[in-house]
Write a protein that binds this DNA or RNA. Structure first.
Lengths: 232, 232
DNA sequence: CTTCGTCAAGAGCAGCGCTCTCTAAACACT
DNA sequence: AGTGTTTAGAGAGCGCTGCTCTTGACGAAG
């Protein structure tokens, strides 16, 4: 009875995967706004209403794509980090930055779904928060590792962070344990700087201006690494 | 004959303004995806097809809103800069950063239109590039002013920018004349850092994490000012 | 007074998300 | 093996969208 039950559920899981695959392909060509359940159904040789057996609404399909996206990006970042020597902290940071950028360039619409304008009327459900921090956890660990190895020497550039930020630092520290507040603050600057850079490139702000984007990116990420205090 | 001709054109211009006003209000409540020509027409007591006399397509209306948005942001930034003492370069930088953030928080959907995910299938026409750099010109001038006043003392954090970036720096220098390449490079870091920060806050990346956003923003922008070399 | 360009109106097309009902197949249980 | 239940897909349909085309009215110019 269990085997037969899983038989039905297996074909169901397969169909769900097929739907998300087609949806992801449509996302890549049309963008989030052009994602159409009817088009997905058409491509599957299904009638549109049948899709609703698997995803109760378009938003639920979007949620599935978002979770997949966070996981794909997280995996790429984890992979890039794992390929580096553990004590090459700056190398790990740069590898992670490049992994983010390369994944974003390879999957622009998925990146836009994760880090671009929120889809109007769509509120990310709780299921997305765990995959969402998967990449963040990686560079949190890099910075924490460097700090604990005594290799973090922040230059005297930033003033000490204001006291109220200590509460927020407490939350962020879940990703980079036992790290002082000023390191957390610098980490956030680097974090927003990384994604600001990628978003600007992807969303067209560099058009007609920046042509050597890889070089600029590497240079800026190196600067941010120095700002954090990562070794030369 | 001229007077009568402008009579007709005047009511036309007025209608165009009314359309964009209503569209902007709809944008604020529904977001870019929810902008509907029919809804605008309904609110104007017009029939939907009549709108096409004034805006040949939804994209053209979007373009008008984008241009207005860039101009509004540019104006806010110019105003914030003008309120500072000319030689208080750090104060001017902070004022400009805050102006960007406050404008973005006050007009989230318009900000998303300018700096969020590009609308799929929509390519920004050439008319948008001039208003688009209006704000950028302001902080370009701040940094250039500080440099020429001899008040720019970049800390020894960033390595010298790679030689290939000199070409791109040439283009950027149109906004900050006679400034060396390494200053341009730092300016770009600060620029992307500013918008990375605003976008993260606005697009929800700080949810469940950062609560003291004003303080964090001010602190980070101060750090970036130091990184550029703006005086204490 | 006629001609001509401009404009609102209306109908209509194809597409969308989503809901409802109906039929048929796969399943669980006696 | 037969029976009741659950699950799946098909189809029609609702109200909405952007957009097109045609029609008829209005006002300015010759």
């Amino acid at each position: 009875m269990n085997a037969s039950r899983t038989a039905r559920e297996r074909v169901r899981a397969e169909l769900i995967k097929e739907i998300t695959d087609i949806a992801r392909r449509q996302l890549a060509t049309e963008g989030a706004g052009g994602l159409s359940l009817r088009a997905v159904a058409r491509e599957m040789g299904m009638v549109s209403s049948a899709i609703y057996r698997y995803f109760p609404s378009r938003d639920d399909l979007l949620t599935a794509l978002i979770i997949d996206g966070y996981n794909a990006l997280g995996e790429a970042v984890e992979h890039a980090d794992a390929a580096c020597a553990r004590d090459d902290f700056t190398g790990r940071w740069l590898a992670v930055c490049r992994a983010v950028r390369e994944w974003a360039l390879a999957h622009p619409h998925e990146y836009a779904l994760l880090y671009g304008s929120p889809v109007p009327g769509y509120a990310a459900p709780q299921d997305t928060v765990a995959p969402a921090v998967r990449d963040t956890a990686v560079y949190g660990r890099i910075i924490a590792d460097a700090h604990h190895a005594g290799r973090l020497a922040p230059p005297p550039v930033c003033p000490p962070p204001p006291a109220v930020l200590a509460q927020d630092a407490e939350v962020v520290r879940a990703l980079m344990p036992d790290v002082p507040d000023d390191v957390v603050a610098r980490a956030i600057i680097a974090w927003t700087g990384l994604f600001g850079m990628v978003s600007f490139e992807l969303f067209g702000q560099f058009n007609n201006t920046i042509t050597h984007r890889t070089e600029l990116f590497d240079h800026n990420m190196t600067c941010l690494a120095r700002l954090i205090g990562l070794p030369e």
